[in-house]
Design a protein around this nucleic acid. Structure first.
Lengths: 211, 211
DNA sequence: CGTAACATTGATTGTCTTCAATACGGGTGG
DNA sequence: CCACCCGTATTGAAGACAATCAATGTTACG
């Protein structure tokens, strides 16, 4: 059962229709880790990162979310958000306030099923961060990240992304991510222009599995 | 609402009471990735790893589970298990067959809440693998792993664990995990005897945050 | 047009992997 | 009981890789 199906239901349609939308500019903080939960979020458009601040002040990105992804699910079982959520691009979100959740779940049992799907999706994405973005050489991890970023556009291009962001996703330094991106550019694996990059998915796939 | 509270409910008590338990020896496979889901599992006693096989044949451990942890939740939303589950020690599990789940969830709405708690716990553990076991130097990652393993026993000792297992958790080679464990032993940070290790949590915490 | 933030590059150091050899431990069959 | 054997752990030496420190380019924006 997809969220679209749920939305086609007349009752839910009106409920969802009434939900607030918000737009965030690049680098806007959506919520801070430890702050009390007010809503859960669904992405209409854009790219969001969930980051975790380490005891020594360093920062690690633990999730990348885009269109149709849901985040902030911990709101349903905990008082406080577990990560800091930041928009990596201009982003439009739909908010589902916590108080609405109660009525949604009571009126529509199938909504619980949708929540489980969202939760499992989060878990699968977390696993991707472990197996793809934290395993192997920095070069192959970067190749996998670029393939991930290019996914929505039939695998050939992706929006610009800062070297510091890449570094915090892969767990390397900005110098390393910059060097690798520059190498990819020189080798013709990617072709960057202001605001956008084209890439060669075949080459990236080879590098991604090379270790 | 805790699982204990649910279990104290008379109706659920009988349902849970009737559930099958199974014992697995060290290294036993509980289920294979891709196999069709039959049940979800709760750990009574022991230690279980969820592993992911990479395209190149290497293996990465994505989760460590112990007493009171639940796994195989993907059974609720997918046909197939997403990981291979293997017992790291002698382990006793309680199975909750999928067909039982339906009746449990229908009869006891609060059971859905428990499921969400379990799902969030899985997600938190996945995040731990990213932020603690995949970030920083191999040495500090190992220190964090040992602190995690020692947690149940007031932080001072843990059962023996193979170097290959450590390596697949931290994303390093067995040689590296062996060298680091040997160093810790020589420096008096840990004290290993057959089947069991004592450790110095204070020293481990310093190393864990050192990066 | 100046400046601050970000990206790139170089040189060096330290860490981790790789390949290879050796040691250990627990179980088996003689 | 002991010798052997296999799987695991340890250790060494060499090289690859990524971090660090430092300098220089580049870009966007007020």
């Amino acid at each position: 059962m997809s969220r679209e199906q749920i939305k086609s239901d007349a009752g839910l349609e009106s409920l969802f229709g009434a939900l607030e939308q918000r737009d965030y500019p690049e680098n806007a903080v959506i919520y801070h880790a430890g702050k009390s939960c007010e809503a859960l979020y669904e992405i209409f458009q854009g790219l969001v990162k969930l980051v975790h601040y380490l005891p020594n002040g360093a920062v690690r990105t633990v999730r990348l979310l885009r269109r149709h992804d849901t985040f902030g699910l911990e709101a349903l079982v905990d008082e406080h958000y577990h990560h800091t959520a930041i928009a990596l691009q201009e982003t439009r979100l739909r908010l589902i306030p916590l108080d609405r959740m109660q009525s949604l779940r009571q009126s529509y049992p199938e909504f619980s099923q949708q929540l489980m799907l969202d939760w499992q999706k989060s878990l699968d994405e977390a696993d991707r961060f472990i197996t793809e973005f934290s395993t192997g050489s920095a070069e192959s991890r970067l190749a996998r990240l670029l393939l991930f970023l290019a996914e929505p556009s039939q695998g050939c291009c992706f929006n610009k992304i800062g070297r510091l962001d890449i570094a915090s996703i892969l767990g390397v330094t900005t110098e390393t991510s910059s060097r690798l991106m520059a190498d990819f550019r020189r080798r013709g694996v990617i072709d960057c222009m202001p605001g956008r990059c084209n890439c060669n998915p075949q080459q990236l796939r080879v590098i991604a599995e090379d270790f």
